[in-house]
Design a protein around this nucleic acid. Sequence first.
DNA 1: GCAAAGGTTTACGTTAACGTAAACGTAAAC
DNA 2: GTTTACGTTTACGTTAACGTAAACCTTTGC
Lengths: 135, 135
Amino acid sequence: MKPDRIAAEPASYSISELAREFDITTRTIRFYEDKGLLSPARRGQTRVYSPEDRVRLKLILRGKRLGFSLDESREIIDMYDPAHGNVEQLQRLLERIEQQRAQLQQQLRDIQSLMGELDDAEARARASLARNTDS
Amino acid sequence: MKPDRIAAEPASYSISELAREFDITTRTIRFYEDKGLLSPARRGQTRVYSPEDRVRLKLILRGKRLGFSLDESREIIDMYDPAHGNVEQLQRLLERIEQQRAQLQQQLRDIQSLMGELDDAEARARASLARNTDS
DNA sequence: GCAAAGGTTTACGTTAACGTAAACGTAAAC
DNA sequence: GTTTACGTTTACGTTAACGTAAACCTTTGC
């Protein structure tokens, strides 16, 4: 028994559907394809995106939010993909993973301190507001 | 009694000292000045950077690591600076702070998930390595 | 006195990541 | 049958964040 009606997932997406969902332009999606980050199927001339394509796009945009370049995002996404062949490749992959982890930890620290400063700034702003508002 | 010899901080820095410390070029530092992010003193024609200037530079680079544009970084840095005058300004400041906080929280989530995926990727790589190495 | 080390301004070049627009195909809607 | 909506390719334009290079001071060591 296949479970049904559990938030059915579309089998494919058009380019404008994806553009709408992620609030980007179709130009952007085609640009990502041009850069080798996506390779949707074609129905005639028209691009047809699979759920996997959609996930890749999602990962690209997550990378963007973290300030990664498209090249970096592609590297990271390919890390999680199949087809890592020989031993040297795997060694290099492990190194890249370590680098990525270090960078993310740095970002984490940066976020922590920035959050703290935002707290301070908000407190000062509210204090200043109180002073200017009462009386 | 002023405590002395507790990691004495220089009273000023040259442009190349800062460039070396943060591993950027002098061109970059001048560029930031051009964009209004720094305004060092001058000794004759030569730029002289105070410890405060150095901190600002540090904040700019932290912003870069988080994928912020220079304009965004300037905004954030100015948030933590003095001179917020009237009530409307303060209101807008509080809004910006809230936006920033939301963005940082999104980045936090992104980092969490990416970290998890890195763990997976590493595990798979190590498993694959083990398979290819033994026998 | 002069070469080397650091500083300056001015200005053109470059790369990433798209925006914008033209010119065209196709399929559904009226 | 033609507007409307959506898709395509091709190509030139734009912005941010610097790189690179020329042409020029000024101080310091020899």
